[in-house]
Amino acid sequence: MAVTPLLSRLVDGLRCLPGVGPKSAQRMAYHLLERDRESARRLAAILALAADKIGHCKSCRTLSETDICPLCASGSRDRTQLCVVEMPADVEAIEQSGSYRGLYFVLMGHLSPLDGVGPEDIGLDQLKERCRAEEVREVILATNPTVEGEATAHYISEQVKDHGIRVTRIAHGVPLGGELEYVDGDTLSHAFSGRREW
């Protein structure tokens, strides 16, 4: 089958998705056009709508189509705890664990000292303002255990400490149910450096 201009544009368009190379983009395009045109139309409509309507929550910066996201607006969250994460997906992960009832702040990235991604790019002024204006008593740093995540956590803790707020960092280490001998050395060394009184 000859690839017409429109079809090749569709394949190109699909390649913007993560994990989608030329081959899988082509497979998706054929699937949508040959077997599932109705889904294709629905997908197109919802994509257009989402791209237009979804912005960022004015309070926590996560993706939201309302000014204040449902989580921030909820009356049943503990407003004295603020958990700082890198991405909206991290909020989802913590929410699914069901272990946290406080509020969030989503950086939408991390500091990257060598790329010039600075505090203003990850909304730290807004975070400080929240710490100042709201009833936050504890900031929980849940940035990733990468060097950039650590640098970001350090930076935030230095900024927030003087507001008289408790700053904690989530523990990283040995997975639950894992046997020590199968845990890789990098995780183990992290677990060791983060050990605590018992």
Partner: peptide
């Protein structure tokens, strides 16, 4: 850039 970031961090 790393120095600029370091400097912008007061109290460190």
């Amino acid at each position: 850039r790393s120095r600029e970031l370091f400097r912008s961090l007061k109290g460190v």
